[in-house]
């Protein structure tokens, strides 16, 4: 049984200009211990699917799916309360803006403790110890001092580490990372990616990397889903995707990478497919 299985997921938003289809019948399967990358440009609906799983979409969204199961439990029929139990404990998520994702009014130690309090039965002292342990695990230097630091006293990379610590606090079975390194510098990005992959390998959890960056995909993923305008273009394991992309859009994306430039001009998507899209 796969960890997460979604069949024919459709998401529609009500807007001033009428309904907008963000996802048009996409399937996702994630096995335990696997790194799945969902890659696409803005408007491809790459984040929407996972937000739908987490129940984080606004009221204007209509979500339909033939199947949406986590470890065999149907997420569609779960009550809000049961859902909260699963989300945050078994599935957790980290976002693009680490500094904005933390509450500026509380110390990071306190925020980590809150997460533990909500989802575990640990006592006060055990929680404190676990917080230090978690901060060590995500590679924050001097965790004993950092516990009482406020988010604004830390850099973006450190905040992202705290977010990751919070996400893995309850040893989730699935971690969803939504553009976790887009707001960070390259050297920090490298560290965070290495950390995520290491944590994933050590714990054997499933990891979904949502990204627009082919480089990030190449560095982390086992399997890749390429999305464009709410549709799945291609799904392949990472090596065959880069070695032998099947879909025209994937080829376009890969050749638009400046490092793959041959000659004076960069090829663009419209060089591969008609201007009308797919």
């Amino acid at each position: 049984m796969p960890l997460l299985e979604i069949r024919n997921l459709k998401v529609e938003f009500a807007t001033a200009k009428g309904p907008f289809k963000a996802l048009d019948g996409v399937d996702y399967t994630v096995e335990a211990g696997e790194v799945l990358a969902i890659v696409g440009e803005s408007g491809s609906g790459k984040s929407v699917a996972m937000l739908a799983v987490m129940g984080l979409l606004p009221d204007t969204a209509t979500i339909t799916a033939d199947k949406m199961e986590f470890e065999g439990r149907d997420l569609r029929t779960l009550s809000a309360k049961e859902r909260r139990k699963v989300i945050g404990k078994d599935i957790s998520m980290i976002f693009q803006e680490p500094i904005a994702s933390l509450n500026p009014c509380f110390t990071v130690g306190h925020q980590l403790e809150e997460t533990l309090k909500a989802h575990t039965t640990l006592g006060r002292r055990e929680r404190k110890a676990r917080v230090i342990e978690l901060m060590k695990a995500v590679g924050l230097p001097k965790p004993e001092e950092r516990v009482s630091a406020f988010p604004h006293q830390m850099s973006g990379g450190q905040c992202q580490r705290v977010m990751i610590a919070m996400a893995i606090a309850c040893a989730p079975k699935l971690l969803i990372a939504d553009e976790p390194t887009t707001a960070l510098d390259v050297t920090i990005q490298k560290q965070i990616l290495d950390l995520l992959v290491k944590l994933q390998q050590d714990s054997g959890m499933g990891l979904i990397m949502i990204t627009h960056d082919m480089g990030v995909v190449a560095e982390t993923a086992d399997r890749v889903i390429v999305q464009y305008k709410g549709n799945k273009m291609e799904e392949a394991d990472v090596l065959s995707l880069f070695e032998n992309p099947q879909h025209a859009y994937t080829r376009a994306l890969l050749s638009a990478l400046p490092e793959n430039a041959t000659g004076d001009r960069l090829p663009t998507v419209s060089d591969f497919v008609g201007a009308g899209g797919f």
Binding site: Q201, M214, V216, A218, E219, F242, L254, E259, N260
Partner: peptide, 22 residues
């Protein structure tokens, strides 16, 4: 040099190397 090393590599060889290491 640190900067260069940190830049993600999207070529097939480095993916192969990574998968082999895994």
């Amino acid at each position: 040099r640190t900067l260069f090393a940190a830049t993600p590599n999207a070529d097939v060889d480095s993916i192969k190397a990574r998968l082999a290491k895994k």
